[in-house]
Nucleic acid binder design. Structure first.
Lengths: 191, 191
DNA sequence: TGCAATGCAATACGGGTGCAATGTAACCCG
DNA sequence: CGGGTTACATTGCACCCGTATTGCATTGCA
């Protein structure tokens, strides 16, 4: 049995189980044993691949953000700035089951990160990256008078974060969220 | 000693301790014993005032939201819609230590509520209330063409939520957040 | 003046937690 | 064809959790 295993693959298998748990029962429902059970393996195996629970958590979060980044990268085919921006932001919104799950995880980790700065760092960097990209696109599109691209980018990201938050707690529908996003894009890119 | 105690007051004392813990160590750091220790009382006393942990949590969240609502109500003196809206939204943003604490708590509960619907209900109702108020004010101010008050209100609330989120994880400064908010208000209310 | 209700404190219980230690198969390498 | 390393599985430990139970003052009320 041994030696011939892909470490990466195993860790992702476990991290996937963790995500499912986090989405279903919250981060506090995540324990070594629960993750093991969800993945259908022994707790010893989990310990084998993650020396500590914190290491497991950190890996899972990194994995989620990598996936979002990957999907966003794949979306960068359109040439019109507005569609590009919209496509990217839609990859973040919880509009299907996969992304709902991801958003749950990220939200759980956000609450966690407000306390543990080491976790927050990764999130912060990813956001900054997205923000500068958005600002570039806004600048390229030549926004209406009175719209500062940097500020607008920051606002746009905050808007999407907020929309995601409200979608998760089912405060309203996907259509409403998309409408709000589109309305904002229209304001920023002009009619 | 007994009989002459204000139940409400005791419960708020405990809920305050809970808030401090939640802000400092996250919701998962909140236990009956920890709350008791933080409040400087026995765990028995906590049990006396909250029959279950869930009851304690629910009460604490309700208390926080009541305080926000109270503060927001006190802010409703200005007559110009834009200033009114701005004042209200600023009461939600984490711009001082008190509100940072509150935001931490609400965020923690949001992650919790994504899993426990009974908690989510209260949050949803409060948000809906705020949203209709915002929409009223926008309508009263006569927004520029192409701005739908209801959608704009929803967007505004989402924006503030997102800004709060990013402020908490110190993704940027208070000034930047306020600037983003003001920029959006200018877009919605016109110059 | 009794007596029930109230406000708490202390303790105990069953269960879940992270983690360390140990065991044991399977494979690769020399 | 041994020895060492890898990949797990099992078990145990100390701790913390939420909750139930019990005990005991103190008080308002009859």
């Amino acid at each position: 049995m041994p030696r011939r295993v892909d470490h990466r693959e195993r860790r992702e298998l476990l991290a996937d189980a963790l995500m499912r748990l986090a989405a279903a029962r919250g981060l506090e429902g995540v324990s070594l044993r629960q993750v093991a059970a969800e993945a259908g393996v022994s707790t010893g195996m989990v310990q084998h691949y993650f020396r500590t629970k914190d290491e497991m958590m950190t890996f899972a979060l990194a994995m989620v953000m990598d996936r979002v980044r990957e999907r966003s990268g794949a979306e960068l085919t359109s040439t019109a700035p507005r569609e590009l921006v919209r496509g990217l932001l839609c990859q973040v919104l919880p509009l299907d089951e996969t992304r709902r799950l991801e958003n749950h995880v990220v939200l759980a980790f956000l609450a966690y990160a407000a306390v543990k700065p080491s976790i927050a760092a990764g999130l912060r960097e990813a956001a900054a990256q997205t923000r500068t990209f958005l600002a570039e696109q806004l600048r390229a599109a030549g926004p209406p008078a009175g719209v500062d691209p940097d500020r607008a980018a920051a606002g746009l990201l905050a808007l999407v974060d907020g929309l995601g938050l409200q979608l998760l707690s089912s405060q309203y529908t996907e259509e409403a969220a998309l409408a709000a996003l589109d309305a904002q894009l229209t304001l920023l890119f002009g009619a």
